[in-house]
Amino acid sequence: MSVLIVIPARYASSRYPGKPLVELTGATGEKKTLIQRSWEAASQVGGVDRVVVATDDDRIREACEAFGAEVVMTSESCRNGTERCAEAAATLGVGFDIVVNLQGDAPLTPAWFIEDLVAGLRANDWAELATPVLRCEGATLNSLLEDRQNGRVGGTTAVFGAGNRGLYFSKEVIPFTSETYADEASTPVFHHVGVYAYRPDTLAAYASWPIGPLETLEGLEQLRFLENGRAVLCTEVESRGRQFWELNNPSDVARIESMMLQMQLP
Protein backbone atom coordinates (compact mmCIF):
# COMPACT_ATOMS: atom_id res chain seq x y z
CA MET A 1 0.00 0.00 0.00
CA SER A 2 1.52 3.32 -1.07
CA VAL A 3 1.70 6.14 1.46
CA LEU A 4 1.74 9.91 0.93
CA ILE A 5 2.62 12.36 3.73
CA VAL A 6 1.20 15.85 3.36
CA ILE A 7 2.37 18.65 5.68
CA PRO A 8 -0.24 21.43 5.60
CA ALA A 9 1.14 24.87 6.44
CA ARG A 10 -0.46 28.30 6.38
CA TYR A 11 0.98 31.67 7.28
CA ALA A 12 -2.20 33.36 8.49
CA SER A 13 -2.72 31.46 11.73
CA SER A 14 -5.16 33.29 14.00
CA ARG A 15 -3.28 32.27 17.16
CA TYR A 16 0.26 32.56 15.83
CA PRO A 17 0.69 34.33 12.46
CA GLY A 18 3.76 33.22 10.54
CA LYS A 19 4.18 30.14 12.72
CA PRO A 20 5.64 27.81 10.02
CA LEU A 21 8.61 30.17 9.56
CA VAL A 22 9.41 30.55 13.26
CA GLU A 23 12.96 29.39 13.96
CA LEU A 24 13.75 26.71 16.52
CA THR A 25 17.26 26.22 17.90
CA GLY A 26 18.37 22.61 18.26
CA ALA A 27 20.86 21.05 20.66
CA THR A 28 23.78 21.94 18.38
CA GLY A 29 22.76 25.60 18.22
CA GLU A 30 21.53 25.35 14.62
CA LYS A 31 18.42 27.32 13.80
CA LYS A 32 15.82 25.83 11.47
CA THR A 33 12.26 26.88 10.75
CA LEU A 34 9.34 24.97 12.20
CA ILE A 35 8.27 23.80 8.75
CA GLN A 36 11.76 22.50 7.94
CA ARG A 37 11.93 20.54 11.18
CA SER A 38 8.47 19.09 10.49
CA TRP A 39 9.53 18.11 6.96
CA GLU A 40 12.70 16.48 8.29
CA ALA A 41 10.60 14.52 10.80
CA ALA A 42 8.36 13.29 7.96
CA SER A 43 11.36 12.33 5.84
CA GLN A 44 12.57 9.95 8.55
CA VAL A 45 9.40 7.82 8.43
CA GLY A 46 9.87 4.37 6.92
CA GLY A 47 7.61 2.95 4.19
CA VAL A 48 6.55 6.35 2.81
CA ASP A 49 6.49 6.93 -0.94
CA ARG A 50 6.29 10.73 -1.07
CA VAL A 51 6.40 13.76 1.26
CA VAL A 52 5.00 17.16 0.23
CA VAL A 53 4.26 20.47 1.91
CA ALA A 54 0.84 21.96 1.11
CA THR A 55 0.50 25.72 1.46
CA ASP A 56 -1.20 28.78 -0.02
CA ASP A 57 1.62 31.18 0.83
CA ASP A 58 4.60 32.03 -1.38
CA ARG A 59 6.80 32.83 1.64
CA ILE A 60 6.34 29.29 2.92
CA ARG A 61 6.79 27.85 -0.59
CA GLU A 62 10.07 29.69 -1.08
CA ALA A 63 11.38 28.64 2.33
CA CYS A 64 10.49 25.00 1.68
CA GLU A 65 11.99 24.88 -1.78
CA ALA A 66 15.20 26.36 -0.35
CA PHE A 67 15.74 23.30 1.85
CA GLY A 68 14.65 20.84 -0.85
CA ALA A 69 11.01 20.08 -0.04
CA GLU A 70 8.39 19.38 -2.69
CA VAL A 71 5.56 21.92 -2.42
CA VAL A 72 1.95 21.71 -3.60
CA MET A 73 0.14 25.06 -3.77
CA THR A 74 -3.42 24.99 -2.47
CA SER A 75 -6.20 27.54 -2.30
CA GLU A 76 -6.70 30.14 0.43
CA SER A 77 -10.20 28.80 0.99
CA CYS A 78 -9.00 25.69 2.88
CA ARG A 79 -10.42 26.00 6.37
CA ASN A 80 -8.06 23.59 8.10
CA GLY A 81 -5.21 21.15 7.52
CA THR A 82 -7.45 18.25 6.54
CA GLU A 83 -9.10 20.25 3.77
CA ARG A 84 -5.64 21.35 2.60
CA CYS A 85 -4.45 17.73 2.57
CA ALA A 86 -7.51 16.71 0.57
CA GLU A 87 -6.85 19.40 -2.03
CA ALA A 88 -3.16 18.50 -2.25
CA ALA A 89 -3.93 14.80 -2.70
CA ALA A 90 -6.45 15.64 -5.44
CA THR A 91 -3.92 17.92 -7.17
CA LEU A 92 -1.26 15.20 -7.19
CA GLY A 93 -3.78 12.82 -8.69
CA VAL A 94 -1.72 9.76 -7.78
CA GLY A 95 -3.33 6.59 -6.47
CA PHE A 96 -2.06 6.48 -2.90
CA ASP A 97 -3.70 3.96 -0.56
CA ILE A 98 -3.11 6.00 2.60
CA VAL A 99 -2.69 9.77 2.97
CA VAL A 100 -1.01 10.99 6.16
CA ASN A 101 -1.53 14.49 7.50
CA LEU A 102 1.49 15.52 9.57
CA GLN A 103 0.60 18.96 10.80
CA GLY A 104 3.38 21.47 10.43
CA ASP A 105 3.48 22.39 14.13
CA ALA A 106 4.64 18.99 15.39
CA PRO A 107 8.40 18.77 14.72
CA LEU A 108 9.00 16.42 17.65
CA THR A 109 6.82 13.68 16.15
CA PRO A 110 8.91 10.47 16.17
CA ALA A 111 8.93 8.36 13.01
CA TRP A 112 7.45 5.36 14.80
CA PHE A 113 4.32 7.33 15.71
CA ILE A 114 3.47 7.55 12.01
CA GLU A 115 4.66 4.03 11.21
CA ASP A 116 2.45 2.62 13.99
CA LEU A 117 -0.43 4.78 12.78
CA VAL A 118 -0.22 3.47 9.22
CA ALA A 119 0.10 -0.11 10.48
CA GLY A 120 -2.99 0.37 12.67
CA LEU A 121 -5.08 1.62 9.76
CA ARG A 122 -3.96 -1.28 7.59
CA ALA A 123 -4.87 -3.80 10.32
CA ASN A 124 -8.35 -2.43 11.06
CA ASP A 125 -10.64 -2.48 8.03
CA TRP A 126 -13.47 -0.83 9.97
CA ALA A 127 -11.47 2.37 10.52
CA GLU A 128 -11.79 5.19 7.99
CA LEU A 129 -8.98 7.17 9.53
CA ALA A 130 -6.51 6.74 12.35
CA THR A 131 -4.78 9.13 14.72
CA PRO A 132 -2.18 8.51 17.45
CA VAL A 133 -2.70 8.99 21.17
CA LEU A 134 -0.02 9.03 23.82
CA ARG A 135 -0.71 8.26 27.47
CA CYS A 136 0.29 11.29 29.53
CA GLU A 137 2.85 11.09 32.24
CA GLY A 138 2.28 13.37 35.20
CA ALA A 139 4.59 16.10 33.86
CA THR A 140 2.68 16.35 30.57
CA LEU A 141 -0.69 16.32 32.30
CA ASN A 142 0.49 19.07 34.64
CA SER A 143 1.58 21.15 31.63
CA LEU A 144 -1.82 20.71 29.98
CA LEU A 145 -3.62 21.72 33.18
CA GLU A 146 -1.30 24.72 33.64
CA ASP A 147 -2.06 25.93 30.12
CA ARG A 148 -5.79 25.78 30.70
CA GLN A 149 -5.54 27.46 34.11
CA ASN A 150 -3.69 30.33 32.45
CA GLY A 151 -6.18 30.69 29.62
CA ARG A 152 -3.95 29.07 26.99
CA VAL A 153 -4.92 26.30 24.61
CA GLY A 154 -2.19 23.69 24.88
CA GLY A 155 -2.45 20.14 23.62
CA THR A 156 -5.58 18.19 22.75
CA THR A 157 -6.78 15.16 24.69
CA ALA A 158 -8.69 12.12 23.43
CA VAL A 159 -11.06 9.52 24.83
CA PHE A 160 -11.82 6.24 23.12
CA GLY A 161 -13.82 3.07 23.75
CA ALA A 162 -13.73 -0.61 22.84
CA GLY A 163 -11.33 -1.46 20.05
CA ASN A 164 -9.75 1.99 20.46
CA ARG A 165 -12.62 3.57 18.55
CA GLY A 166 -12.49 7.33 19.06
CA LEU A 167 -15.30 8.85 21.14
CA TYR A 168 -14.25 12.48 21.52
CA PHE A 169 -11.38 14.96 21.30
CA SER A 170 -11.12 18.18 23.28
CA LYS A 171 -8.90 21.13 24.08
CA GLU A 172 -10.03 20.65 27.63
CA VAL A 173 -8.31 17.98 29.71
CA ILE A 174 -10.52 14.88 29.53
CA PRO A 175 -11.43 12.60 31.18
CA PHE A 176 -11.67 14.54 34.43
CA THR A 177 -9.41 13.30 37.19
CA SER A 178 -9.11 14.77 40.68
CA GLU A 179 -5.88 12.95 41.47
CA THR A 180 -2.43 14.52 41.58
CA TYR A 181 0.28 12.65 39.70
CA ALA A 182 4.05 12.69 40.06
CA ASP A 183 6.05 13.68 36.97
CA GLU A 184 6.86 10.11 35.93
CA ALA A 185 3.50 8.59 36.88
CA SER A 186 1.14 7.07 34.32
CA THR A 187 -2.19 8.90 34.13
CA PRO A 188 -5.62 8.10 32.61
CA VAL A 189 -5.35 11.05 30.22
CA PHE A 190 -4.27 10.60 26.60
CA HIS A 191 -2.56 13.38 24.66
CA HIS A 192 -3.78 13.49 21.08
CA VAL A 193 -0.90 13.68 18.61
CA GLY A 194 -1.72 15.91 15.63
CA VAL A 195 -1.22 13.32 12.91
CA TYR A 196 -3.88 11.57 10.81
CA ALA A 197 -3.88 8.70 8.32
CA TYR A 198 -6.91 8.66 6.02
CA ARG A 199 -8.47 6.32 3.53
CA PRO A 200 -8.46 8.43 0.34
CA ASP A 201 -12.23 8.23 -0.18
CA THR A 202 -12.89 9.45 3.37
CA LEU A 203 -10.44 12.32 2.97
CA ALA A 204 -11.96 13.34 -0.37
CA ALA A 205 -15.46 13.45 1.17
CA TYR A 206 -14.43 15.58 4.15
CA ALA A 207 -14.56 19.03 2.53
CA SER A 208 -18.12 18.48 1.32
CA TRP A 209 -19.47 18.06 4.86
CA PRO A 210 -20.70 21.14 6.75
CA ILE A 211 -18.81 22.28 9.81
CA GLY A 212 -20.77 21.01 12.81
CA PRO A 213 -21.32 22.54 16.25
CA LEU A 214 -18.68 20.47 18.01
CA GLU A 215 -15.96 21.34 15.49
CA THR A 216 -17.02 24.99 15.79
CA LEU A 217 -16.84 25.00 19.59
CA GLU A 218 -13.60 23.08 19.96
CA GLY A 219 -11.85 24.26 16.82
CA LEU A 220 -10.77 20.66 16.15
CA GLU A 221 -10.99 19.46 12.55
CA GLN A 222 -11.15 15.75 13.44
CA LEU A 223 -14.52 16.23 15.12
CA ARG A 224 -16.11 16.64 11.68
CA PHE A 225 -15.46 12.94 11.10
CA LEU A 226 -17.17 11.99 14.37
CA GLU A 227 -20.07 14.36 13.72
CA ASN A 228 -20.60 12.58 10.40
CA GLY A 229 -20.52 9.10 11.93
CA ARG A 230 -17.12 8.11 10.57
CA ALA A 231 -15.04 5.54 12.43
CA VAL A 232 -11.82 6.89 13.92
CA LEU A 233 -9.12 4.57 15.22
CA CYS A 234 -7.06 5.93 18.12
CA THR A 235 -3.72 4.18 17.86
CA GLU A 236 -1.85 4.18 21.15
CA VAL A 237 1.83 4.91 20.63
CA GLU A 238 4.81 4.70 22.98
CA SER A 239 7.10 7.61 23.75
CA ARG A 240 10.22 5.42 24.15
CA GLY A 241 11.71 8.15 26.28
CA ARG A 242 11.01 10.90 23.73
CA GLN A 243 9.24 14.05 24.84
CA PHE A 244 6.45 15.36 22.65
CA TRP A 245 4.82 18.77 22.33
CA GLU A 246 3.19 20.81 19.58
CA LEU A 247 3.88 24.46 18.85
CA ASN A 248 0.54 26.12 19.46
CA ASN A 249 1.53 29.40 21.14
CA PRO A 250 4.63 31.64 21.17
CA SER A 251 5.40 30.37 24.67
CA ASP A 252 5.81 26.85 23.24
CA VAL A 253 9.00 27.82 21.38
CA ALA A 254 11.11 27.83 24.56
CA ARG A 255 9.43 24.63 25.76
CA ILE A 256 10.18 22.77 22.53
CA GLU A 257 13.75 24.09 22.36
CA SER A 258 14.29 22.88 25.93
CA MET A 259 12.99 19.43 24.97
CA MET A 260 15.27 19.33 21.92
CA LEU A 261 18.24 20.21 24.11
CA GLN A 262 17.37 17.51 26.66
CA MET A 263 16.96 14.89 23.93
CA GLN A 264 20.03 16.16 22.05
CA LEU A 265 18.06 16.68 18.85
CA PRO A 266 20.04 18.78 16.36
Rank of each mutant, 00 (worst) to 15 (best):
M1S: 11
I5W: 07
V6S: 05
V6N: 05
R10M: 10
Y11P: 00
S13F: 03
S14P: 09
P17N: 09
P17H: 09
P20F: 09
L21R: 01
V22H: 05
E23L: 15
L24Q: 01
L24K: 00
G26V: 14
A27I: 08
G29R: 05
G29W: 05
K31A: 15
K31T: 14
I35K: 07
Q36M: 12
Q36E: 15
Q36W: 13
S43C: 15
S43R: 14
Q44G: 13
G46S: 12
G46H: 03
R50T: 10
V51D: 04
V52P: 09
A63I: 08
E65I: 10
E65G: 10
F67E: 09
F67R: 10
V72E: 13
R79W: 07
G81D: 06
G81K: 05
T82S: 02
R84T: 10
R84I: 03
C85Q: 01
G93D: 12
V94C: 06
D97W: 05
D97C: 07
D105M: 01
T109S: 13
E115T: 14
E115S: 11
D116W: 02
V118C: 06
G120N: 08
L121F: 06
A123K: 14
A123C: 07
N124D: 14
E128V: 04
L129K: 07
P132C: 11
R135E: 10
R135V: 11
C136A: 14
E137W: 09
G138A: 10
G138D: 06
A139E: 13
T140H: 13
L145M: 06
L145F: 00
L145W: 02
D147N: 09
G154N: 03
G161K: 12
A162D: 14
R165M: 14
L167I: 15
Y168R: 12
F169H: 11
E172K: 15
Y181C: 01
D183I: 02
S186K: 12
T187A: 08
G194Q: 10
R199H: 06
Y206V: 03
W209Q: 04
P210T: 07
P210M: 05
P210H: 07
G212H: 13
G212R: 14
E215P: 03
L217Q: 12
L217V: 11
L217Y: 11
Q222V: 15
Q222K: 01
L223G: 03
E227K: 04
N228Q: 10
N228R: 08
G229H: 08
L233D: 00
C234K: 00
E238K: 09
G241I: 05
R242M: 12
W245A: 03
S251Q: 15
S251F: 01
A254S: 09
I256V: 15
S258T: 13
S258R: 04
S258C: 01
M260I: 01
Q262C: 04
Q264Y: 00
Q264P: 00
